[in-house]
Simulated assay, not measured.
Amino acid sequence: MSDAPPPSPPRSSASQPRNPLHGVTLERMVTELADHYGWEGLGQRIPVRCFTHDPSVGSSLKFLRRTPWAREKTESLYLFMQRENRRAQRP
């Protein structure tokens, strides 16, 4: 008999069906926010240096990965943008 643990079940979207951020990378969020609002608009909505002074996706990712409060604000703005886009598409 083997002492190996049983294989874990595959991760799927069914494991987090109500999480709107499931499967969305931080890089995708920053890129879509910058495309939608522009770096200046993003810096006005979330006033952090990585968005206001010489912004780039790389520097933003570095900062957001080590700063939980800024990441939460970024995730909230991303969800807000998604809701606004859905509302705009309704007839």
Results as ranks from 00 to 15, higher is better:
1 M>S: 14
1 M>H: 12
2 S>Y: 08
2 S>H: 13
3 D>Y: 14
4 A>E: 09
5 P>E: 10
5 P>T: 12
6 P>Y: 14
7 P>F: 04
8 S>T: 08
8 S>E: 14
10 P>G: 05
10 P>H: 07
12 S>I: 02
13 S>I: 15
13 S>E: 12
14 A>H: 13
14 A>N: 10
14 A>Q: 15
15 S>M: 11
16 Q>Y: 09
16 Q>L: 14
16 Q>P: 05
16 Q>H: 15
17 P>N: 07
18 R>C: 15
18 R>L: 15
18 R>I: 13
18 R>G: 14
18 R>K: 14
18 R>M: 10
19 N>W: 03
19 N>Q: 06
20 P>R: 00
20 P>T: 05
20 P>W: 08
20 P>Q: 03
21 L>T: 03
22 H>C: 11
22 H>D: 14
23 G>V: 09
23 G>Q: 04
24 V>F: 10
26 L>E: 05
27 E>T: 11
27 E>C: 11
28 R>I: 05
29 M>G: 03
29 M>R: 08
29 M>Q: 07
30 V>N: 06
32 E>F: 02
32 E>Q: 06
33 L>N: 01
34 A>D: 02
37 Y>M: 03
37 Y>P: 06
38 G>A: 02
40 E>P: 05
40 E>F: 11
41 G>C: 00
42 L>K: 00
43 G>L: 04
44 Q>K: 08
44 Q>M: 09
44 Q>V: 03
44 Q>L: 12
45 R>V: 02
46 I>N: 04
46 I>M: 01
47 P>I: 06
48 V>E: 00
48 V>T: 00
49 R>W: 11
49 R>C: 07
50 C>I: 01
50 C>M: 04
51 F>W: 00
51 F>Y: 01
51 F>R: 01
52 T>L: 07
53 H>R: 15
54 D>F: 13
55 P>S: 07
55 P>D: 01
56 S>M: 01
57 V>M: 03
57 V>P: 03
57 V>W: 01
57 V>D: 02
57 V>T: 01
58 G>T: 01
58 G>H: 01
59 S>K: 13
59 S>T: 06
60 S>I: 00
60 S>K: 01
61 L>A: 05
61 L>K: 04
63 F>S: 10
64 L>N: 01
65 R>D: 08
65 R>M: 10
66 R>N: 13
66 R>W: 03
66 R>D: 11
66 R>Q: 12
66 R>K: 15
67 T>D: 12
67 T>Y: 10
68 P>C: 04
68 P>A: 08
68 P>M: 04
69 W>M: 07
70 A>N: 09
70 A>G: 11
71 R>C: 14
71 R>Q: 15
72 E>T: 12
72 E>V: 13
73 K>I: 05
73 K>M: 13
73 K>Y: 10
74 T>A: 14
75 E>C: 12
75 E>P: 06
76 S>T: 12
76 S>I: 05
76 S>A: 15
77 L>F: 02
77 L>E: 03
79 L>Y: 08
79 L>G: 10
79 L>M: 10
80 F>Q: 15
80 F>G: 02
81 M>F: 14
81 M>C: 06
82 Q>C: 09
83 R>E: 11
83 R>Q: 11
84 E>Q: 13
84 E>K: 09
84 E>L: 09
84 E>A: 06
85 N>D: 11
85 N>T: 14
86 R>W: 12
87 R>K: 08
87 R>Y: 00
87 R>G: 06
89 Q>G: 10
90 R>I: 05
91 P>K: 08
